[in-house]
């Protein structure tokens, strides 16, 4: 399986505890293909000024957020709705366990940065639209706005990194067990 593209325009969601019902409401769980989820990304997100139909949301390739991102249900429809919208990278202070593992299991990135680092990415927004580049091998994220760049190293467990390289857990597990 080919490796996914990481990085691109960032959507900044300044709130903690964004849950899976907000990312993809339960009423769409009757879909049995990932593609069908595409129009509904973040449809029920409760965040002042956020519009799921805005260009910023539709063009995003990276989401930056706060603590406990993806809490709630185990639905992999949450990472999938990001995936089919081209968002293969989430950067947050922390994650709910199942969501984080679902991201890596699908060969995508759930990157954890400290609160201070996330604050600095949010501060960049004052300069203009934020872009993020990710180097998985070097475990480094570079966020930029209006020519101003900030670099951050991130930790990823060797297992999660192997999943991203393998293209996901099914491939990894089937080859090994």
């Amino acid at each position: 399986m080919s490796r996914k593209q990481f990085g691109g325009p960032a959507l900044l969601l300044d709130r903690s505890d964004i849950n899976t019902d907000e990312i993809i409401p339960a009423k769409y769980l009757t879909e049995v293909t990932k593609e069908a989820l595409r129009p509904y990304m973040l449809e029920d997100l409760k965040l002042e000024g956020f519009d799921p139909a805005s260009a910023e949301a539709r063009e995003a390739r990276v989401v930056v957020s706060r603590e406990n991102f993806g809490c709630g249900s185990s639905r992999e429809h949450a990472p999938w709705v990001f995936e089919v919208n081209g968002v293969h990278t989430i950067i947050a202070e922390s994650y709910a366990r199942i969501f984080r593992q679902n991201m890596f299991n699908g060969g995508m990135l759930a990157i954890e940065l400290s609160r201070q680092d996330i604050d600095r990415i949010f501060d960049l927004r004052r300069l203009g639209a934020v872009e993020v580049r990710v180097d998985v091998d070097a475990q480094r994220v570079v966020a930029s706005a209006a020519g101003h760049e900030l670099g951050f190293d991130f930790e990823v467990s060797p297992f999660d990194k192997a999943l991203v390289k393998a293209g996901g857990w099914v491939e990894f597990a089937d080859a090994r067990y």
């Binding site: 639905r75 969501f99 593992q101 699908g106 089937d174 067990y177």
Partner: peptide, 20 residues
């Protein structure tokens, strides 16, 4: 433990699951 569909898929196929 609750898991996503990919973990479930591997569970169905191989009877294993990875945890920290």
């Amino acid at each position: 433990a609750g898991v996503g569909t990919t973990d479930l898929e591997v569970g169905i196929l191989k009877g294993v699951c990875a945890f920290r």
